[in-house]
Design a protein around this nucleic acid. Structure first.
Length: 292
DNA sequence: AACTATCTCAACCGCCCAGTG
DNA sequence: GCACTGGGCGGTTGAGATAGT
């Protein structure tokens, strides 16, 4: 509908981001903070749409991002949240620290919806379906455990049985994350230094007691690797190895915090689910509370 | 080894909403 | 109330990776 694109696309670079672009964007945001996405590309020296910059930052470059497989607990939570909220990925992501809406959306579409189908559940309505054809998920030709190792993301699968490859995710507002847009609730995630949105990232990979990870797509091919790594880790060279080497162990070390948070969430759900009398009413009110 | 089918997910697109003047 | 802008969201796409033939 009539709205003009957020910026002129003439001459703008599209497609996968290079390490150099990542570095430029990260550096700019570290210095000036988030916001003003429309003008940011120009100021940062990027030939990108502001939206593209925002997306790249939010889903990949933010320092308060962790990596890691989506755990079975998170699986379960996503399914429950989806039953409550539908395809409101940002809200669901808001309940899963370290997960982006894009990641959850992708994960749902590629894994969870198929799983529900295979279990005879309509992924849209979360109700049992009777059509046997719908129960059969689209199968890959192999039933072998795929060990996908995309060079693009340079990620190693930790859990042998899980096929989902982790991608970078963000922990919404480490000190206290709040719902975006429609949501207003929040919780406090661990103490430690806060990483504000006003350019206080300082290029460090350490956020509080957490080691957060910077994306490293393009690393293997990019000649700017060293510059980028050095840049991204700032002066904290002890973190270099986290970037240069396999950081999967570090990913798993991040999980306890998330698991702890998940426990809280489960408590909420259990409380709701225990009340069988008017469970639907409570679930509805719970869903509404997310939207306030 | 080559080809094909399938899967994954980063990135883009269009729309909506809130804020501002 | 209206127009405009910036930011954000959900849906979709397509390149690259993987596995089977």
């Amino acid at each position: 509908m009539g709205r003009a694109p957020c910026c002129s696309k003439v001459g703008l670079h599209r497609g996968p981001w290079t390490a150099r672009e990542d570095a430029l964007l990260t550096k700019y945001i570290q210095l000036h903070g988030e916001g003003n996405w429309r003008s940011l590309p120009k100021k940062a020296g990027l030939l990108r749409c502001g939206k593209s910059c925002r997306l790249r930052w939010m889903n990949y470059l933010r320092p308060d991002i962790k990596r890691g497989n989506i755990s079975p607990d998170e699986d379960d939570l996503i399914i429950k949240m989806h039953a409550l909220l539908g395809n409101r990925w940002s809200l669901i992501a808001g309940r899963l620290p370290g997960r982006t809406d894009n990641e959850i959306k992708n994960y749902w579409n590629t894994h969870l919806s198929k799983r529900l189908l295979s279990q005879g559940t309509d992924p849209n309505t979360h109700k049992k379906i009777s059509d046997p054809h719908l129960k059969e998920p689209k199968k890959r030709r192999s039933n072998s455990k795929k060990q996908k190792n995309k060079s693009k993301s340079n990620v190693v699968v930790i859990e042998k049985l899980k096929v989902h490859n982790p991608k970078p995710t963000r922990i919404k507002s480490l000190s206290s994350f709040s719902m975006s847009r429609n949501g207003s609730f929040g919780w406090t995630i661990s103490g430690g230094s806060s990483s504000s949105h006003e350019g206080d990232h300082r290029g460090s990979l350490l956020v509080g007691t957490e080691v957060v990870h910077v994306p490293w797509s393009d690393f293997k091919d990019d000649a700017d690797h060293e510059n980028r790594v050095g840049f991204l880790v700032g002066d904290d060279h002890q973190d270099r190895d986290l970037v240069n080497g396999s950081d999967l162990e570090c990913h798993s070390q991040l999980l306890p915090m998330s698991d702890h948070t998940l426990e809280k969430l489960y408590e909420e759900y259990l409380q709701l689910l225990k009340a069988e009398d008017d469970v639907q009413v409570q679930l509805d009110s719970f869903a509404e509370s997310l939207l306030i």
